[in-house]
Lab assay of single mutants.
Amino acid sequence: MIHRILNHSVDKKGHVHYLIKWRDLPYDQASWESEDVEIQDYDLFKQSYWNHR
């Protein structure tokens, strides 16, 4: 379960990846995930991330 999205990056092919802080895990366990991976409520977290940038 996502706690929040910390950052994003765009690779050379134009694909967006998000650095995800996972609920109940420390920050050093955050991981980069592609924008099209199937994660519960991912779209809501991405929308919230962009609304607050």
Score class of each variant (00 low, 15 high):
Y18E: 06
H8D: 00
R23G: 07
S34K: 15
N7A: 13
H17N: 13
Y49Q: 00
D43F: 08
E38H: 09
L44R: 14
S48H: 15
H3P: 04
L44P: 01
E33K: 13
R53T: 10
R53S: 11
K21F: 06
D24W: 08
V16N: 00
H17T: 15
I2F: 00
K12G: 13
E33M: 15
N7T: 11
H17F: 09
D24V: 06
E38G: 10
K46A: 01
E38I: 12
R53N: 09
Q40R: 11
N7Y: 07
Q40M: 11
F45A: 14
R23P: 02
I39R: 03
V10C: 06
E35W: 05
K46P: 01
N7Q: 12
I5C: 00
N7W: 06
D41Q: 10
Y49W: 00
N7H: 09
N51R: 15
P26K: 06
A30L: 02
I20V: 09
L19D: 04
H17E: 10
I39Q: 03
E33N: 05
L25T: 14
D24N: 13
W50G: 02
K21V: 07
F45P: 01
L6K: 01
D41F: 09
H52F: 12
Q40Y: 07
S31H: 01
K46H: 01
W32H: 03
Y42K: 03
W22G: 01
N51E: 15
D24G: 12
W32C: 03
Y18G: 03
D11C: 08
L44S: 14
D24R: 07
R23F: 08
H8M: 02
S34N: 11
Q29N: 07
H17M: 13
W50Q: 00
D24A: 08
W22C: 03
S31K: 03
K12C: 14
L44T: 13
L6S: 02
I5R: 02
W22Q: 03
I5N: 00
L44M: 15
G14T: 00
Y42H: 12
W50S: 05
K13N: 12
E35Y: 03
D43G: 11
I39V: 04
E33C: 15
S48F: 10
F45D: 06
K13P: 02
Y18D: 00
H3K: 06
A30G: 00
H3Y: 11
L19S: 04
Y49L: 04
I2V: 06
K21Y: 08
R4K: 15
D43T: 08
M1A: 06
M1G: 13
L44I: 14
H15F: 08
E38V: 10
D24I: 04
L19E: 03
L6R: 02
L6V: 10
E35A: 11
N51I: 06
R23V: 12
L44N: 12
H52N: 14
S9E: 12
H52M: 11
E38K: 13
M1D: 07
V16F: 08
M1I: 15
K46V: 09
Q29P: 03
L25C: 11
V37R: 15
Q40H: 12
Y49I: 00
H15N: 15
Y49K: 05
Q47V: 12
L19V: 02
M1Q: 05
P26A: 04
P26H: 09
Y49S: 00
S9R: 15
N51S: 13
K13V: 09
W32Y: 01
L19Y: 09
I39C: 04
D11V: 00
K13D: 15
D11S: 09
L44F: 10
F45E: 04
I39T: 04
W32R: 04
D28R: 11
S48L: 14
H17I: 13
P26D: 11
I39M: 07
D11T: 06
S48W: 08
S31M: 00
H52L: 13
S48V: 14
S31V: 05
D28I: 05
V10T: 12
E33P: 01
A30C: 11
W32A: 00
G14H: 01
H8Y: 03
H15L: 11
R53D: 11
K12Y: 11
V37E: 13
K12N: 13
D11R: 03
Q40K: 14
V16I: 13
R4E: 14
P26T: 08
H3E: 15
L19K: 00
K21R: 07
A30T: 05
A30S: 09
L6Y: 04
Q40E: 13
I20D: 01
N51T: 14
L6W: 00
S48P: 05
M1K: 15
P26I: 01
N51H: 10
M1Y: 15
R4N: 09
L19C: 00
R4V: 08
L25S: 12
S34T: 08
K46R: 03
V37H: 12
K13C: 09
E35L: 02
A30F: 06
E38P: 10
E38D: 11
E38S: 11
D43P: 08
K12Q: 12
S31C: 06
R53G: 10
L25E: 08
N51M: 14
H52V: 14
K46T: 04
E35I: 03
D28W: 08
L19M: 10
N7P: 01
F45T: 05
H15Q: 13
W32S: 00
D28C: 13
D28K: 12
K46S: 02
G14N: 07
D41T: 01
D36C: 08
W50R: 04
I39S: 04
H17V: 07
R53F: 11
Y18A: 05
I2S: 04
Q47I: 15
N7V: 04
V37P: 04
D41M: 03
H8A: 01
H15W: 05
H52S: 15
E38L: 10
H3D: 15
K13I: 06
I2A: 00
Q29W: 06
I5L: 07
K21A: 14
D11I: 02
R4D: 07
V16A: 06
D36K: 13
D11E: 07
I2T: 05
D28Y: 07
L25D: 07
H15R: 14
F45I: 07
Q47Y: 08
Q29E: 09
E33I: 15
H8N: 04
I5F: 02
D36E: 12
R53Q: 14
D24M: 06
Q40C: 13
G14I: 05
R4A: 06
N7E: 09
P26W: 05
L44A: 14
H17Y: 13
N51A: 14
K46Q: 07
V16D: 05
D24H: 11
S34D: 09
Y18Q: 00
L25M: 15
S9I: 13
H52K: 15
L19Q: 00
S9N: 07
V16T: 13
Y18R: 00
V16W: 04
H15G: 13
Q29C: 11
P26S: 11
H52I: 09
Q47N: 15
D24Q: 07
H15C: 11
W50K: 06
V37F: 11
H8G: 02
W50P: 02
S34M: 07
D28T: 12
V10H: 06
W32V: 04
L6E: 01
V10D: 05
K13A: 10
S48C: 13
R4T: 13
Q47C: 07
N7I: 06
Q40I: 10
E35H: 03
Y18V: 04
Y42G: 04
H17D: 07
D11L: 01
D28E: 14
F45Q: 04
Y49A: 03
S9T: 13
H15K: 15
V16Q: 06
D11F: 05
I2D: 05
N51P: 00
I2G: 03
